[in-house]
Design a protein around this nucleic acid. Structure first.
Lengths: 348, 348
DNA sequence: TTGTACGCGTTATCAG
DNA sequence: CTGATAACGCGTACAA
């Protein structure tokens, strides 16, 4: 048990000390221009002297503002997510906001509980990237009902009154697939994620569009769905190796770099050459993509930018200072990075 | 500006609705056994019906407990840190605690500001990994003074009333260096970090101890200090290549995997063979260490475990349920993972 | 088992 | 420019 220390120093202590009212102290502490410069100085000095530290929730209780944003993500430990968090923290800090962070571990139930916790903490806004198998956003109703702004990022969901921050996954996947086709690939396997999530559904759509445009047949046997983990990548390799030679793909487009890399490693271990026997492209520009040999062609977009944009937008909305307050979707750029893993015919 | 919605539903609304007192509602909501089972049921039903959601800071204001822990790290976006955060979130969530997270970006000033913010939010405890060039922990005084528990993790600092969670960096570095020596390496370069931080100082000490034990000379020209970034790794490679052949190291022990890997890549690009010309060992078991060719020998320890342990310990302390409340240091295990990058003479 | 009454530290409102 | 006073929503002695 922690001992209860002596009472904390409050604005009343400062008031008493200076023989002024607590109201004046409160105002002075926030540099309210109504208070004379000298009084403000006196208050500030006394605060330091007495070791005063404001009590955020007493303030929140009264002002109905917590200056805290809730962040809810599927997992904290991926390169993209931690970059996004870093970007969020930067933006939040710059505006005097704090972040309260939780992960759903891809479990809808945990996501629901965390949403409620965030609500109970009365966050001023919520940033969320949905868990893999959430089918709807009914659990966000408490926020919608009270018009507390919600910003979806990365794994978004359509909602009239919320903003979505992400990239054009459809176009990105289209570009990647086209690039592989331009390299002469004709049987391109797609290593995809759960189609409930827009990011994976759209990457799959973009892939199919490119195939169609080039009159390449799409076959369900060339579309694997998984959680895109290291294991999933290795399993995909086993799947490929067990395919009859005639049906073997000559390229793989993976919806993330992790699965791509571990698929590559397993295929290489089995004696296949990359890109000669099978070309590879991933997604995310994860650090491992430029360490693997050959380097992995991938789609680059900045997690930091996504996070920073999402928070900046949210805070602008809260402060009502942005004309963007009713923007419904923010699409950040993503660039194809062509590396050796997909270059069947010399440099590009 | 966000419109102020209708007042929130409070325990008073529930009380009025059921013709009972707010106190009873308050107690019933927390399943206080003093309240009869049926009353509790009625309260719970009414709460659901009216859409009641508890207001955490009204509660915190009264109870002086926030059930929130502050987490302050140098950077959010490294593999180790995001794993540690994931472990912390797990442990916290399991005990009904929340995490408020900020990064110092290695700047002492930002660290100080964040510490104060955490204090003002009245976190129940603080978890901190110090920024690279913090020379003391005077800025934690507000916490110490009010006996709010502080737990250092990874980059720790001695303090009588705080706990430190980490690994034995001294021994780990000693093991790594010894392994390199056993492989026949005689001139081992150490790519180290800022010596103000225990993790780097101890890894350096362990390295020197191994050298000394094997009567290998230590030379300042074999100790590079940097921020261990990708660039720093590449620069180290340049440094090595510019050394007169006779002075070139035959091994590199880097205090993290990132610098090791980018040093390897640059040396390989210059035509050096690893491990034949120069052996490598890193630290952290970062994902890139098992993707680089040849795979990087490294020290494995779980960020998740560090984070989970730190939070569990802190919460146990808060709840006063642990005999460990006065433990001053928790050392987790770290294992040498020997991979091809350091094997000069066949498999081990 | 339940109700009464007050206070946690701050800010908003309304006077002066 | 400053002060008095009443909330904000909840928890807890104390009384019943």
């Amino acid at each position: 048990m922690i001992m209860q220390e002596d009472r904390e120093v409050t604005i009343y202590d400062i008031a008493k000390y200076l023989n002024i009212s607590a109201a004046t102290v409160s105002r002075g502490l926030k540099n309210n221009p109504m208070i004379s410069k000298q009084t403000r100085k006196k208050i500030s000095d006394a605060a330091n002297l007495l070791g005063y530290q404001s009590n955020t929730f007493a303030s929140s209780l009264r002002s109905r503002q917590t200056h805290t944003l809730g962040v809810l993500v599927p997992r904290l430990n991926s390169h993209f997510m931690s970059s996004a968090l870093a970007g969020m923290e930067n933006a939040a800090n710059a505006h005097g906001y704090n972040l309260i962070i939780a992960q759903s571990l891809e479990e809808v139930e945990k996501e629901k509980r965390n949403v409620l916790t965030m609500y109970n903490k009365r966050v001023d806004g919520l940033l969320i990237s949905l868990s893999a198998n959430a089918t709807d956003i009914a659990h966000l109703e408490p926020f919608f009902k009270r018009k507390i702004p919600v910003v979806f990022f990365d794994r978004v969901h359509p909602h009239a009154e919320s903003t979505a921050v992400g990239i054009d996954n459809y176009d990105a996947a289209y570009q990647i697939t086209q690039h592989l086709i331009a390299q002469g690939c004709k049987r391109i396997l797609h290593l995809g994620g759960n189609l409930l999530r827009n990011v994976y559904a759209e990457r799959f759509r973009g892939y199919k569009k490119a195939l169609k445009e080039h009159r390449l047949p799409f076959s369900a046997s060339l579309h694997l769905v998984s959680n895109l983990s290291e294991q999933a990548g290795a399993e995909a390799a086993r799947y490929i190796l067990e395919l009859p030679p005639a049906q073997r793909p000559d390229a793989v487009f993976s919806a993330n770099d992790t699965a791509a890399v571990y698929c590559m490693l397993a295929l290489q271990a089995a004696g296949l050459r990359i890109p000669e026997d099978i070309a590879f492209a991933g997604f995310n520009n994860d650090p491992i993509s430029k360490v693997i040999a050959p380097n992995l062609t991938t789609m680059n977009y900045s997690g930091e930018a996504v996070g920073h944009t999402a928070v900046s937008h949210l805070i602008n909305h809260l402060k009502g200072t942005s004309a963007l307050y009713d923007t419904n979707a923010i699409t950040l750029r993503a660039d194809l990075i062509i590396r050796a893993s997909s270059l069947k015919r010399g440099a590009s």
